[in-house]
Amino acid sequence: MKKLEILGTGCPKCSQLAASAEAAARELGVEYELVKITDINEIMKYGVMVTPALAVDGEVKVVGKVPSADEIKALLS
């Protein structure tokens, strides 16, 4: 089970990133848990200063952008 964490305060790009990450995980057939972290203080604990960001199993993979579906798949596989 992969833990997908969306770091962002809830703006449209954060939602877009969450949807893309979920879609990528489903297409790969990967079991996942999606967690949205919206508290800025919690986000900053990850060392992230620009949102949205995606962390996979606790490791920050993408910061400040919404990657393509293929890019997210590469991160998850």
Partner: peptide
């Protein structure tokens, strides 16, 4: 070597 910070710099 804070991982999230390194990734933030890489993605800037």
């Amino acid at each position: 070597g804070i991982q999230g910070m390194l990734q933030t710099a890489k993605d800037a």
